[in-house]
Simulated assay, not measured.
Amino acid sequence: MFMIELKTPFEFIEELIVTIEKTRKRKKLRQQDLCDLAGLSIATYQKFIYQKKISLISLVQVLYALDMISNLEGLIAYDEIQSLDDIREAANKNPLPKRVRK
């Protein structure tokens, strides 16, 4: 039996901040340097870090500045399969190739 661990929005944001801060430090950027690259004020960035509040556009600007935009790809992907019946139908349309013994 497996268990799915769901994170609260607050926990998710905390992890996002940790990842962003680790990346910023790995790139040897000060917070001000990152803000300059992202076109944000230091107050906006620190509000994100300490109060966990940021607009979506500001977050995207930070991710672009850190070369982390691929982290958002999962958010904009659209999954065509909506139900178990859709999964079965998709599997029937594209069956796996059968193994052939020689």
Rank of each mutant, 00 (worst) to 15 (best):
M1I: 06
M1W: 01
M1R: 03
F2H: 09
M3H: 03
M3F: 02
I4W: 00
I4C: 01
E5K: 10
L6V: 07
L6S: 08
K7C: 03
P9G: 05
E11H: 03
E11Y: 02
F12L: 14
F12S: 13
I13E: 09
I13F: 04
I13S: 10
E14A: 11
E14F: 02
E14Q: 13
E14D: 14
E15L: 12
E15I: 09
L16S: 13
T19F: 04
T19D: 09
T23W: 02
T23V: 06
R24K: 03
K25S: 09
K25D: 05
R26N: 14
K28C: 09
K28M: 11
K28S: 15
K28R: 15
L29C: 01
L29Y: 02
R30C: 05
Q32G: 02
D33L: 00
D33Y: 01
L34M: 02
D36A: 00
D36M: 02
D36S: 02
L37M: 06
L37H: 05
A38F: 00
G39L: 03
L40F: 03
L40H: 04
A43Q: 15
Y45V: 04
Y45W: 08
Q46N: 15
Q46L: 05
K47E: 05
K47V: 01
F48M: 02
F48S: 01
F48H: 00
F48R: 00
I49E: 15
Y50T: 08
Y50P: 04
Y50I: 04
Y50L: 10
Y50E: 10
Q51C: 11
Q51I: 02
K52H: 11
K53D: 11
I54P: 01
S55N: 06
L56M: 10
L56T: 08
I57H: 11
I57W: 01
S58A: 15
V60A: 04
Q61W: 00
Q61L: 12
V62N: 02
V62C: 01
L63I: 08
A65I: 00
M68I: 03
I69Q: 09
I69R: 05
I69A: 09
N71A: 15
N71H: 15
L72C: 08
L72K: 08
L72S: 03
L72G: 04
E73V: 12
E73L: 13
G74K: 13
G74R: 12
L75T: 08
A77P: 03
A77G: 10
Y78S: 14
Y78R: 14
D79Q: 14
E80K: 15
E80Y: 06
I81L: 12
I81Q: 05
I81H: 01
Q82G: 09
S83Y: 03
I87M: 12
I87W: 07
I87C: 11
R88A: 10
R88N: 11
R88C: 08
E89Y: 13
A91L: 14
A91H: 13
A91F: 13
N92Q: 07
N94M: 08
P95H: 05
P95V: 01
P95G: 05
P95S: 05
L96N: 11
L96E: 12
P97E: 03
P97R: 04
K98N: 12
K98M: 09
R99F: 14
V100E: 15
R101E: 11
R101P: 06
R101L: 12
